[in-house]
């Protein structure tokens, strides 16, 4: 039971970190990339450390892993925010969406976007 839960958490975490990496490659500019890194990266490392905690047991790992967890969860969004702040301050080139969305897309999905 514990093993299953731990395996599930580790896999979820690893796949969300991978998701952040895919977002880092696929999204068009710095600010959009920082979205992916902030959200998916935080959830990924949170799940991995939680899985480690479940696997090791509360007694062995105890508070140190909570410290690592809290540190990671606070610093990843902060780092992404710092990068976004710098991109905003230095007015780096931003990706702009093409003006008119292709009409066939919106007609097919039936929604405005």
């Amino acid at each position: 039971m514990t093993e299953l839960l731990s395996a599930l958490l580790l896999l979820t975490g690893a796949s969300f970190v991978l998701l952040a990496a895919i977002g880092l490659v696929r999204l068009p500019d710095v600010l959009c990339r920082s979205h992916a890194v902030a959200k998916a990266g935080t959830l990924g490392i949170f799940a991995i450390l939680l899985g480690l905690w479940v696997e090791l047991g509360v007694a062995a790992a105890g508070l140190k892993i909570l410290l690592a967890l809290a540190f990671q969860v606070t610093t990843i969004p902060a780092a992404a925010h710092l990068v976004g702040l710098l991109a905003w301050q230095k007015n780096l080139p931003r990706w702009r969406a093409p003006q008119a969305p292709p009409p066939d897309r919106s007609a097919r999905t039936g929604r405005p976007h």
Partner: peptide, 19 residues
């Protein structure tokens, strides 16, 4: 950003080794 993400994945790998 890429460096930050690589550091995060390495932390994840260390946690996996620990498991």
């Amino acid at each position: 950003l890429a460096f930050d993400l690589i550091a995060t994945s390495i932390v994840g790998m260390i946690a996996l080794l620990s498991v």
